[in-house]
């Protein structure tokens, strides 16, 4: 499943998984495929306040640098430390072991503005943005 139905998506190719007022965030299959082999991530520190639509992390592949935008506003409560040593998890398992951080939502309603799997898939089929 390239775009699991239980997740929500942004036009900037991040995915969001809701877990009781908290949002686990990563980049989609499409995003990692376009980037190629991920070799380095710059993730925010726990406690950082992030704002929806604003850059909060950076993913670097062998060939390119790409910004990651916060899909929702809130506070970073957890980051995936495993990516420091194994950035390739973003390619190998983007929706599970390749997660990047967990955001505690400041406004849970924002979550409803994201795309579902179908809508995201259509966006990607058009060639993304």
């Amino acid at each position: 499943m390239k775009y699991p139905e239980n997740l929500k998506y942004t036009k900037d190719h991040e995915w969001v998984r809701m877990e009781g007022g908290k949002a686990q965030v990563g980049i989609t299959f499409y995003a990692q495929d376009q980037l190629g082999d991920v070799v380095f991530l710059e993730l925010p520190e726990v406690g950082t306040e992030v704002e929806a639509g604003v850059m909060f992390a950076t993913v670097e592949s062998v060939k390119a640098v790409s910004d990651v935008y916060a899909p929702v506003s809130g506070k970073i409560v957890e980051v995936n430390e495993a990516l420091n040593d194994s950035p390739e998890l973003v390619n190998e398992d983007p929706y599970n072991n390749g997660w990047m951080c967990v955001i505690e939502l400041s406004g849970p309603s924002e979550f409803d503005n994201l795309m579902d799997s179908n809508a995201y898939q259509k966006l990607v089929e058009k060639g993304g943005e």
Binding site: G36, D37, V62, K63
Partner: peptide, 11 residues
């Protein structure tokens, strides 16, 4: 072609 299977694997 910039890559076939992936830059790391090809490298």
């Amino acid at each position: 072609p910039v890559q076939f299977t992936g830059i790391k694997e090809e490298h």
